Simulated assay, not measured.
Amino acid sequence: MAAAATSVVAIAFVSAGAPARAAGTASGGPEAPFLSENDQAMTRMMDGMSIKPSGDVDRDFVAMMIPHHQGAIDMAQAELRYGHNEQLRRIAQEIIVEQQQEITAMRLALGQPLPPSAPAPDQGQAPSRAAPSQPMSIMTTPMPMRMNQETK
């Protein structure tokens, strides 16, 4: 269910957001690095989801869903680099953890090997104003996340 909802959001973002992204990037405004990075993430996601059917529905599902989930991770990382709203930044962190866990679960369900673990990007750094040339490495091992804790 969550994957279907995420697909609808991604499709809506691609179709409705494309002119806004292009205009924001072309204008060179303060949002341009974020929009550029998001556009790159969406392009990688859509390219990755275009697969040649293998004849195995389960493998094809996973082959399409992993790039979809990675796209969500990449967009959430862009929010962490450029966004300022703390509530949205927390949601972005949750998206990263949840999508990584789902990628791991899908790979395990098919008996696929997991990629080697990599350190999570340092979200404590000031946002970089230049979009990275390569996607950031992410941690592929599920991380427990404490939810609904009150801050003091």
Rank of each mutant, 00 (worst) to 15 (best):
T6C: 08
R44W: 03
L110K: 05
P67F: 02
A4F: 10
R129I: 07
Q40G: 13
M147K: 13
F61P: 00
P19Y: 04
I73S: 01
S54N: 06
D39L: 09
M45W: 01
P53F: 04
P135Y: 03
A92R: 01
T43K: 13
P116D: 10
S36K: 11
G24S: 10
M64K: 05
V9K: 10
A2Y: 12
Q125N: 13
P135D: 03
G111Q: 06
T151A: 13
Q125R: 15
Q40S: 14
Q149R: 14
V97A: 14
D60V: 00
P19K: 08
M143E: 15
G83D: 07
L110W: 03
Q93W: 09
A63D: 04
G28I: 04
Q134D: 12
T151I: 12
E150W: 12
F61L: 08
G48L: 02
T140P: 01
N148R: 15
G124V: 02
L110C: 05
A10K: 07
G124S: 11
V62Y: 00
I11S: 13
I91E: 07
A118M: 12
H68K: 08
P53N: 02
E37M: 00
Q149Y: 10
P30E: 15
S36D: 10
T43V: 10
I51P: 01
R90T: 12
G111L: 02
Q112T: 06
S128L: 11
Q123W: 15
Q70L: 14
M145K: 11
A41D: 00
P115Y: 02
P119Y: 09
S15R: 14
A23R: 14
H68P: 00
A41W: 00
A16N: 14
D58L: 03
P121Q: 07
I95N: 04
A20Y: 11
F34D: 03
L110N: 05
P33C: 09
G29V: 07
A105L: 06
P142G: 04
A26T: 10
G55S: 05
P115S: 03
M64R: 05
T141Q: 11
M75T: 07
T151D: 15
G24L: 06
I96Y: 02
V9D: 10
Q40L: 15
L114N: 07
M106W: 07
N85M: 09
H84Q: 14
Q134W: 06
A105K: 09
A23V: 12
E79G: 01
I91M: 11
E31D: 15
S128W: 08
P113T: 12
R146A: 10
P121S: 06
L108S: 08
Q100F: 00
Q40A: 15
S15K: 13
Q134K: 15
A105W: 04
E98R: 11
R59Y: 01
D60L: 01
P119C: 09
P142V: 03
P142Q: 05
A26I: 04
A12D: 12
T141C: 04
H84C: 08
D39R: 12
Y82A: 02
L110Y: 06
I11Q: 13
I51T: 04
H69E: 05
A92H: 00
P33T: 09
M65H: 01
L35R: 06
M45I: 03
R59H: 08
A2Q: 14
S128V: 03
P115T: 02
S7K: 11
S54K: 04
A32T: 09
P132H: 07
A76R: 02
S128C: 07
Q149D: 11
P30T: 09
T140R: 12
S15V: 11
A18D: 13
S137Y: 05
